[in-house]
Write a protein that binds this DNA or RNA. Structure first.
Length: 318
DNA sequence: TAGGCCATCTGGTCCT
DNA sequence: AGGACCAGATGGCCTA
């Protein structure tokens, strides 16, 4: 008989990232019927192995089993089942932690999850990139930042990250070492980074009436955003000035994100990587973002309270 | 269909 | 003795 590991309060442990994540009803979580099935399956395997012993078939691993008394054999089976359950629990806990990690690295998407290995690689790169930014003490170069993020990632993940950060992924070339290099100026560089002289560089120099008439996504100015942050005088001034129409992408828990104001339906439809990180076909990489966004987005201490992912997604839907 | 990813089972090892 | 952790094996699912 298996113990019931999955509803164990211990399994609802706190994330090491400071937030408590309620265990979702995982489709993979075994219900009682599945537990029974697993148990039966286990029993079958046990018996199979015992048959192997009798037939003198070579065992794959471990010492040859002794013939156990019936009572002791049952006990061994039970212990094995319990160990299996604990192991499942342990792995679920590990997966929970990994899911928490997915939520705090760039490019979180419920619909297109990063694999475990890619999540770990991206997290490592992200930590590295942020550390570099902090130690440099000045605004980071976005391209270098993204390149660091993408180091060693697979091409699909690189595309995802680049897409998330609104760069043209075609300009990222992964060399044979898995390093990512950047070749040339991104197609969208000018529109994405119009700084310093382009019209969009100024908060008020945004759009003409015709633009509005077709409901374009307004570009944000990344560098202007940085300026805004770095211009804020004291460490106490936690809310940099952003009184123009443009605002940079939101960042929650260090994730670049964009807050949608309009075209929500179409935005959602065209969102290839989930709700938060999208390239909108026909609209370049430009988004209209919330004027109440704050900067710096990627420099918040983890201890600060942020909206949960669900709240964020709700915000997008509403 | 091959390959990637994943969950699970399993036996071994280490620690309490 | 028993639990935690680990790594190998296996099979299922999905996608290109």
């Amino acid at each position: 008989m298996l113990t019931v590991p999955f509803e164990d309060p211990d399994m609802m442990r706190e994330s090491q990232f400071g937030a408590t994540f309620t265990r979702q009803e995982d489709a993979r979580t075994l219900n009682s019927a599945e537990l029974k099935e697993a148990e039966d399956d286990n029993t079958d395997r046990e018996e199979e192995r015992e048959d192997d012993d009798e037939n003198d078939l070579p065992k794959k691993k471990g010492a040859r089993k002794k013939k156990l008394s019936e009572g002791r054999g049952e006990r061994v089976k039970m212990r094995r089942h319990e160990a299996n359950a604990r192991e499942r629990s342990r792995m679920h806990g590990l997966n929970d932690a990994l899911e928490s990690l997915r939520k705090v690295v760039p490019c979180y998407s419920k619909t297109q999850k990063l694999s475990k290995i890619e999540t770990l690689r991206l997290a490592k790169n992200y930590i590295w990139a942020l550390s570099e930014t902090l130690s440099a003490g000045k605004r980071p170069d976005l391209l270098a930042f993204v390149q660091t993020l993408c180091k060693g990632l697979s091409q699909p993940t690189t595309n995802l990250v680049a897409g998330c950060l609104q760069l043209n992924a075609r300009n990222f070339l992964t060399d044979h070492n898995g390093d990512v290099s950047f070749s040339g100026r991104p197609h969208q560089y000018d529109s994405l980074y119009p700084y310093p002289n382009a019209e969009m560089a100024t908060p008020t120099g945004l759009s003409s009436g015709t633009r509005d008439s077709v409901k374009p996504f307004r570009p944000y100015n990344y560098y202007a955003s940085y300026e805004s942050y770095y211009d804020s005088a004291s460490p106490e001034s936690s809310s940099p000035r952003f009184d123009g129409q443009m605002s940079p992408p939101n960042n929650y828990n260090g994730i670049f994100s964009l807050k949608k104001h309009e075209d929500q339906v179409e935005y959602s439809k065209n969102c290839h990587y989930g709700m938060r990180y999208c390239n909108v076909p026909g609209r370049g990489s430009m988004y209209r973002v919330s004027p109440d966004s704050h900067f710096p987005y990627d420099l918040h201490p983890r201890g600060q309270s942020f909206q949960s992912q669900d709240e964020l997604n709700t915000g997008f839907h509403n």
